[in-house]
Each structure stands twice: as C-alpha cells, then as structure tokens.
Write a protein that binds this DNA or RNA. Structure first.
Length: 479
DNA sequence: CCTGGAGTTGTCCTA
DNA sequence: TTAGGACAACTCCAG
C-alpha cells in the first residue's frame, strides 16, 4: 500500500482518459488514483440499461481497464456503499466524478454526495459530457428555452458559452490497486446467447474506437454531410452516438476536431450542420434537465387524451420488421441486427408506429431503449416526443411521413432496403418501396408472393394517415 | 404589454 | 416533370 492515501475517480458515462475533468482534477492532487466503475442497476428504476447498451458497456469497460493497465476496479450494487467500502479499504479522502443529467441520477448523486461528506470524504464533481450545462443557459427572463434555434444561438454560438478546448490526457498517472470489487464477468453485462456477433463486427467500443470513428468520419463522411446525412444508403453519418453516450469521446473534443475543417473550402456548411447535430444532443439534455418528466409524460398535456390504440400483434410486427412496408422493415431489422438505425429511418419508423399504427410513443421508446447501442435517455425521449408531436417544440400535426416517398427520396437505388430485406431484393426500384403496387407478373418475376414470403402492408397508408389526422385534429389546441 | 417573425427533419394537390 | 401553395393555429422569443 502506498504511504500517501489515494484519491478515487468514479467513472460513469465518461469512459475515457483524455478530456476527463474528474480524472484531471484527481491527477492534479498528485496522489495515487483508484479508478472505479460501479454498476448500480437498482437506482435506475425503469431505465435500467437495455441489452444492447450492456453489451457495449462490457466492451468499453474492457477497453478502459486496458488503458489503465488493468487497474480499473469494478463494483456491483449500491454506489454509495461501494465508494465507502473502497475509501475504507484504501484510506482515500477524495472522490472525483463527472456529472450525469438523468433525473434519477441527479437525485442519486446528490444523496451519495451527502452520504460521503457525512462520512468525512471530500467530493468533487465536474462537467465531462456536455458543451455547456443546462442550468447555464436561460432566456433573459430566467426560464428555459423550448425552441432549438434560439437555444443554439445563445449556447454554442455565443461568445459567452463557446465550447472550451478539451483537456489533455494525464501523463504517467500513479494508480493504486486495492484488492476489492468484482470481475468484469461478474457484472453480467454480456448476453447468454450470441446475438451480438453482427453488432460486434460493426463497432469498436472504447476510447480508441471512438477516435478511429471520428477520424474516419472527418476523412470520408463530413464532406457532403448536410445532404448525405439523410441517406441511409450512404456513409455520411458520424455514428458517434454510442461513443458519446458512454463518454468515450467528449463533445468538446469532437467540436474542436471540426475546427480545422471549418475553414476548408466547400465544407463550411457541412461542418456547421454537423455541429448543430451536436447541439441537438445538448438540447435533449437541456430539455431533460428542465423538464424531468420528458421520458414519461407528454410535454403537451392535451395529448394525454389522444386515443392511442392497443395492438400487441401490430407492435410485435413493427419490432420484428415485418410490417410489409420495406423502408420500415429495413430500419427495424437494421436495429435488431446491428444495434443502430440510421437517423432518417428512425424518424420514418417512429412516424409509422405513432401515426400509421397509432400506438403510443412509449412502445417505440422502450423498444429503442433495449435494442440501441446508443440508447440515451435524453436523446431517445426527446426524439420520440418530437416525432409524436407531443414535445416542447412540436411538429405540426399534419407532418406524417409517407414511408414510400421517404424510401424513394432517401434510398433511391434501394441499396438500403435490399441489404436488410433481401426477400424483395429482386424487385425493380420502381416497386421496391411499395411491393403491393407491383403487377402480378413483376412480383412473380422477383419470386415474391405477398402474404407468403413478404407480408401485405399491415395498414393501408392512406387510410391510416387520415385516421391519425382526424384524431390529432379532434384534440384541438387547448391545453 | 405589444408586435411580429419564426419554428430540424412533410405531403398533397394544382397548375 | 416540377414548383409553389395549402395545410391551423399556436407558442416561443426577441425587440
């Protein structure tokens, strides 16, 4: 044991060494560091991590542990108790962490902070995962923004709140290694069956993987981002969302890396657009912080009386990608197979569930929560409320995606649909997004029998659109 | 308090 | 084939 008592760094959603304010603050004490991660499922309540996220976390912890020379300590269960045990064991006097913003975490962390201070420990927390924290941005009257654009102008784009340069990685950290805790396997994050193999092929969780992804995006994806980001058949998305969610890379780092590109000819617009997407992540966290009921309740109360349908069979077919609407099925199958879905297609499948099937957005939110590797309470909840039109900055009720038009517009050559819905791959482009409109001879030529090897559409698009329009109209506008 | 412009992501019909 | 307007009315926000 070291003669100097160590300090504890509690890793949470900041699974990286560079630009990690808590780690930096601990390092600056000059004392040995005990790095720890605690899996505390019970505190999360309904928002216990989903299966895909747990797979990712396992890989990411493995990567972090390796970057820390195998010194990461792991605990399972109550966080305050684990930290107290660790402090007792090591004689540590300080605990450092970066803040999280989910309502259940804010409440839990406040409790923990009090308990640790009562036990005589010093506690420091920092902002490690946002460009700016939700409480720092308000309108001149002190109330929170509900509209993205003015929020963005007042935030990232203002002098006052311009993103800060990231911190470097501490060099030559001294790590302490008490013999406490559990093994990674004992966290039981890995699923018992091997459904994750295709997911594993597509992703490299961890800080190194995050940087490789960012570099690949900056080299190949960002040019043409503004238009290309809408194309699920192309590679213009950053795919940084899971890395950002787990804090393997920080938004400050990403913001700074785009800085040099912004001055290159011809891509200023693309860079601006990408940065505004980072700001959308900030806005989701901002909404969750100021409206903590965001994951549970319609922000616009009038939607509480919307006549949602109950239809377990339809929900199951949506989940499986078995709706008979190709772009919807492609998206849902991409999600199931890869733990990810292209953003444009997320909107299409969400609109289909909410508007065409008229099922409550909670169903979609919960399914995404379990299956997405980037499942994030703020982004997921804000996104579903946005599509449902129940959120802060509501969409006009008549904005109902037509999945056939969306398919034709954003997957014009059908590459995306053919990849994930191979049973209709032989259909010509003209009919690929609406097989039910194809003449019998064309279907026969493509070896398709609707209702046999690919379903008839689960709802009539026109009728269900009108049904939803009527239901939304009936709500009126009064709160 | 009043005013007026604006609001991520759409669809459909008509000329 | 393509471009433009209709589709409601509301709330948000800055001046």
């Amino acid at each position: 044991m070291n003669t100097v008592e160590p300090v504890i760094v509690w890793f949470r959603q900041d699974l990286r060494l560079a630009d990690n304010p808590a780690l930096r603050a601990a390092f600056d004490t000059g004392k040995p560091i005990v790095p720890v991660f605690i899996l505390d499922d019970d505190s999360a309540g309904e928002w216990k991590m989903g299966a895909a996220s747990r797979w990712w976390l396992h890989q990411s912890l493995e990567s972090l542990d390796s970057a820390l020379d195998g010194r990461l300590r792991l605990f399972r269960g109550d966080a305050a108790a684990s930290l107290r045990e660790l402090a007792r064991e090591t004689g540590a006097t300080h605990v450092f962490w970066n803040r999280c913003y989910e309502p259940w975490r804010i409440a839990r962390d406040k409790r923990i902070k009090d308990q640790l201070r009562d036990a005589g420990l010093c506690v420091n927390s920092d902002n490690g995962s946002l460009l700016f924290e939700p409480h720092t941005i308000t309108k001149s009257d002190g109330t929170p923004y509900k509209v993205f654009t003015p929020f963005y102008r007042k935030g990232c784009l203002s002098e006052e709140h311009a993103p800060q340069p990231p911190l470097s990685k501490p060099k030559q950290m001294e790590l302490a290694t008490p013999a406490v805790g559990v093994t990674l396997a004992e966290l039981e994050l890995m699923p018992s069956t091997h459904w994750y193999e295709e997911i594993a092929q597509q992703w490299q969780p961890g800080e190194d993987g995050a940087w490789q992804r960012l570099q690949a995006f900056l080299e190949n994806g960002i040019r043409g981002y503004k238009q290309g980001r809408n194309r699920p058949d192309q590679n213009h998305c950053s795919r940084l969302s899971p890395h950002l969610h787990f804090g393997e890379i920080s938004p400050r780092q990403v913001w700074q890396e785009t800085e040099a590109l912004a001055n290159q000819s011809g891509i200023a617009d693309d860079v601006d657009h990408f940065r505004s997407e980072l700001a959308w992540r900030e806005f989701s966290y901002y909404l969750l912080y100021h409206f903590p009921q965001l994951p549970e309740d319609n922000l616009q109360a009038k939607f509480d009386r919307f006549p949602w349908r109950e239809d377990d069979a339809a929900l199951a077919r949506w989940q499986r990608g078995d709706t008979g609407v190709p772009i919807v099925d492609a998206g849902m199958r991409q999600l199931w197979r890869t733990g990810y879905m292209h953003n444009r297609v997320r909107m299409v499948v969400a609109s289909f569930l909410i508007k065409n099937l008229m099922l409550h957005w909670h169903h979609g939110q919960m399914w995404f929560w379990d299956t997405l590797v980037d499942a994030d309470l703020a982004n997921n909840s804000a996104g579903w409320q946005w599509v449902a039109g129940t959120g802060a900055d509501a969409a006009p009720y008549f904005r109902i995606f037509n999945p056939v038009l969306q398919g034709k517009k954003f997957d014009p050559d059908g590459d995306y649909v053919r990849r994930y819905v191979p049973e209709i791959a032989e259909l010509p482009n003209r009919y690929l997004h609406s097989p039910w409109t194809a003449p019998d001879a064309v279907l026969a030529e493509a070896n398709i029998t609707l209702g046999k090897n690919y379903p008839e559409p689960i709802v009539d698009l026109k009728e269900s659109r009108e049904r939803a329009l009527a239901a939304f109209k009936d709500l009126g506008t009064a709160a």
